[in-house]
């Protein structure tokens, strides 16, 4: 709970500092996914806690040294908000001045993210994919487990079922809006993927993992997660075959600006796909563990 509030707080902090895209993401991650996973884990491992003394002092020493080093580091930094800092005069302004002409979309963050530093974003998708593989290999349920009878709480609660039917379609629509509006306002593939996943996770919470899996199966999720990465990569490969370098979207069409547009839309789609698939996959894994633990208790 507290960490959820913490997530929201840091998100509003980012808005104050004009980082709307970052705030959006932090809101989705910091107060959405991460507390959800934490809660599921705590539900599985229990709240039991033990005091173990003795580690405090060395930890304090280490932390103090690090803190001192940090303070030394920050003291001689340019003032907060200063327009003359090196970070504001060297590479950053180039994006602000040139991105309209070179990429042609208003959201500079999206321009930098998807094009100038598109390879970082490719790496980011790969990180998400890696985490998905890791969680899957750790928490994959044996396929031999017998199918549990699909009697879950939602069947007993009519209200929940109706509420979910009202809630889920708008969330899915909203995620599509975020996906394709990223060029103009805050948003993009990652945020959209998370929201899309949230809708499915909501569905899962109401109807149970088994029924959700009939709609979106684990096998499909794996293919989608892999396909998103491949889609992103293939944009790069196509631009290479068209004579540009890897991820050079300008080579995708005769007009460089059109090429940039096509490239950004397709890679954002790849990002959204992988992120949504991996998030749902991770949730299935965690929720599946909760279910088996509950059965073991009964």
């Amino acid at each position: 709970m507290l960490s959820g509030i913490y997530g929201f707080l840091s998100a509003s902090f980012f808005v104050l500092m004009d980082a709307v895209d970052v705030a959006f993401t932090e809101a989705a991650v910091g107060s959405g996914i991460s507390p959800l996973l934490m809660l599921l884990t705590v539900a599985l491992v229990g709240r039991h806690e033990k005091q173990n003394p003795g580690r405090g002092l060395p930890a304090l020493v280490l932390v103090t040294i690090t803190g001192a080093l940090l303070i030394i580091g920050t003291l001689s930094m340019p003032d907060f908000g200063s327009a003359n800092a090196p970070a504001q005069t060297h590479v950053g302004p180039y994006y602000i001045e040139q991105s309209a002409a070179e990429i042609g979309i208003p959201n500079i963050v999206t321009s930098v993210l998807a094009s100038y530093r598109g390879f970082d974003t490719f790496g980011e998708v790969a990180v998400v994919f890696t985490a998905g593989i890791g969680v899957l290999s750790l928490l994959m349920l044996k396929s031999s487990t017998p199918e549990t009878p699909a009697v879950t709480s939602a069947h007993k609660h009519k209200i929940l079922r109706i509420v979910s039917k009202i809630l889920i379609p708008p969330i899915l629509l909203f995620s599509l809006y975020v996906q394709f509006h990223g060029d103009y306002g805050p948003g993009g593939g990652f945020q959209a993927g998370v929201i899309f996943a949230a809708a499915i996770i909501l569905y899962t919470m109401f109807f149970g993992v088994d029924i959700a899996q009939q709609v979106v199966s684990s096998a499909l999720l794996r293919v989608l997660a892999a396909f998103g990465v491949l889609l992103y990569g293939s944009v790069g490969l196509v631009s290479m075959l068209n004579g540009g370098t890897f991820l050079d979207y300008s080579a995708l069409a005769d007009n460089p600006i059109t090429g940039q547009h096509i490239g950004i839309i397709v890679i954002e789609l790849g990002v959204g796909m992988t992120v949504a698939a991996v998030m749902v996959m991770i949730f299935y894994c965690f929720a599946g563990q909760v279910n088996t633990a509950r059965e073991a208790d009964e």
Partner: peptide, 12 residues
């Protein structure tokens, strides 16, 4: 090798 066709230091 300039990734994305953007020269360093603007690109990777």
């Amino acid at each position: 090798y300039a990734l994305g066709g953007w020269q360093a230091p603007w690109g990777i």
